[in-house]
Simulated scan of single mutants.
Amino acid sequence: MRGYTFPVPRKLIKVSGLFLATLALCGTNAFAHDFWILPHDAMSKNGDKVIFELRIGPGVPGKQTPRLPGLIATFDAQDALGQQNVEGHDGALVIGHLKTRVPGATITSLTTNGAKITLPADEFEDYLKEEGLNKIVKARAENGESDQPGVELFYRCAKSVILVDNQSKGYDNVLGLEHELVPLTDPIKYTPGKPFVVRLFANSRPLARLQVKAELNTTPPTILRAITDKNGLVSFNLPMKGEWLFSSVDMDVSPVDGADWKSIWASLTIPVAEGNAG
């Protein structure tokens, strides 16, 4: 299979025992790659302190996990005044915090260093199918590897949109992450049941033919799926307001020895229809 040309990882860490224990809390390792940041509170006032949780799991609500040493490569926030660092320290359940400083959207982004994990063949195949990575299922079958463990090098690009003073200007800014989900529908003006459009980017270029999931923490969880078009666009008719999680993953051959595949996971949390546009 012909793959993308990936840059050599800035930092590669082995999956630690603590990290594997955290994954075990979420069920099988195959579906524990989902990774997102959850702010308190996504609808804030100017000058409020916002704290962030890290969630890992097969989907919402996930399990809260601490900020592990070596995990985070970058943790920043972008607003109308520019970029600021999100402060935090290793070992804390509050993985970061910031003070809002201007009305409109504050977009936080967290990227991780690379970590490697080996999954049994059945778990790896199940996870590929769950995430819509049929190209990898096909490639493994063509190479006679379907019954072989999957050795994966994975990275995460997590975003969270905070809306300050009930204003949303800047919600659709593109940060230029390696993989990035960008909302194109104003979250404050959105009416449940109508199209909510999201675009998937790789280094600011649209990504086509990849699955995007939209999830809401209901009982049972609400899960919607769509495939990006040639412009990287997906549209969901979200049935209700709330803090929605959007996620997607792409995978291709690993650029480094010791791993078969490299995956990039993108996630986005955003409060939808929770403000009052009027």
Rank of each mutant, 00 (worst) to 15 (best):
S204T: 11
F236H: 03
T191K: 15
K230V: 10
V197E: 15
T222R: 00
L210Q: 05
M240Y: 13
V253L: 11
T228A: 06
P239Q: 06
K230D: 14
M240P: 07
S254P: 02
P239S: 10
F236R: 01
P206C: 06
K213N: 05
I223F: 04
R205Y: 11
L216R: 02
L238F: 10
M240R: 15
V212S: 00
L207E: 00
E178P: 13
T219A: 05
F196T: 12
S254R: 08
F236L: 06
G193S: 06
L216H: 07
K189P: 10
L184R: 15
P192F: 09
M240Q: 15
T191M: 12
T219F: 10
K230N: 13
N203A: 14
K189N: 12
T222E: 07
E215K: 00
M251P: 01
V174Q: 14
Y171K: 02
F246E: 04
G242E: 10
P187F: 00
A208Y: 10
L175C: 06
W244T: 11
V249F: 01
M251E: 10
N237P: 03
Y171S: 01
L245N: 08
V212T: 00
L184I: 12
L245T: 06
P192T: 09
V182R: 01
L207V: 13
P192R: 06
D252H: 07
F196N: 04
P220W: 06
K189I: 05
G193Q: 08
P220F: 04
N217Q: 05
G242T: 00
V253I: 11
Y171F: 14
V249W: 01
